[in-house]
């Protein structure tokens, strides 16, 4: 029996919108009866059309938004039953690299606080050790030590994305939800960051739910791949299996594009 770090059963999330004028009600099915098993120490890829519910699913797993129904077992604990307080206690074990770090990072904090504060709070380290750790993390994502003093608005798109990666990795999570983590990076830095993630996987317990859309990268990074379409997981399997014999119409189209661009 394989050991799954995350086990999702029958997960649903619907966003309801009421328009004031026409009293028209809209339902957006962002997660529809999602079942998902993420094996421990795997890189699990999630692809799908824009708006298909990938970010929503990532946030549901981390209880950043509340599901309507279903269960999410993380390391044997059903997180849907935990209080927000209990969630906070286990939060360091799962972290997320947000898709839009520009808006996720507090604009009033310097880079050293953005990366250092969670470490100080969770690991109860003294300021000297926190600072050392911040510099180590900055170096790991190829940012210079001077950047520790910068505010987010002083950074380029790719520099912000790397601060976000450093922040998420700082707590040494067991599970990382990486939501489009390398989209704003040039090919060289992208390669460096992807190598870093692969290195972490070799060195310690580390599972990644990798949300992305670049099939070349997904192929190299992921052990398993799931495809989402309109809130549903429409197919799952090894990367090879999905690339060689896609079954869903969206996957078929996507995979055919991959060969055109080659």
């Amino acid at each position: 029996m394989t050991d799954n770090i995350v086990k999702i059963r029958g997960l649903n999330k619907t966003f309801i919108r009421k328009t004031l004028i026409t009293r028209h009600v809209e339902y957006i099915y962002a997660a529809r009866n999602v079942n998902l098993d993420i094996p421990r120490d795997s890189f699990y890829g999630l692809v799908g059309e824009t708006g298909s519910g990938k970010t929503t699913l990532g946030k549901l797993i981390l209880r950043l938004i509340e599901p309507d129904s279903g269960s999410i077992i993380f390391d044997g604990i059903d997180v849907t039953r935990l209080s927000q307080r209990e969630i906070r206690r286990i939060r360091p074990m799962f972290q997320v690299i947000f898709q839009n770090p520009q808006s996720a990072l507090n604009p009033k904090q310097r880079v050293k606080q953005l990366i250092g504060n969670p470490i100080r709070f969770q690991k109860k380290l003294d300021s000297k050790s926190v600072e050392k750790e911040v510099f180590r993390l900055l170096d790991e994502v190829q940012l210079s030590a001077e950047m520790a003093e910068y505010f987010p608005h002083q950074l380029s798109g790719g520099q912000i994305q790397r601060v976000e990666i450093a922040r998420a990795l700082g707590l040494k999570p067991k599970l990382l939800v990486a939501d489009e983590p390398v989209t704003s990076l040039d090919a060289s830095i992208r390669g460096h960051i992807l190598n870093l993630l692969l290195q972490l996987k070799k060195n310690r317990e580390f599972t990644v739910l990798f949300i992305g859309h670049d099939l070349h990268i997904m192929e190299k990074m992921c052990d398993i791949l799931s495809v989402m379409y309109k809130g549903e997981i429409v197919e799952s399997g090894s990367v090879k299996q999905i690339f060689n014999a896609p079954t869903h119409k969206y996957t078929k189209k996507l995979v055919s594009m991959r060969y055109i661009s080659d």
Binding site: S144, D186, A187, S188, G191, L194, N195
Partner: peptide, 27 residues
């Protein structure tokens, strides 16, 4: 040349190509 080969080269032995070192700081 270096940037293009990072973007277009194949991954070797599970390692993505990259350019050693990093860009200088603005100041």
């Amino acid at each position: 040349k270096a940037l293009f080969s990072c973007a277009l080269a194949k991954v070797k032995d599970g390692v993505f190509p990259f350019i050693e070192g990093s860009i200088p700081k603005p100041h």
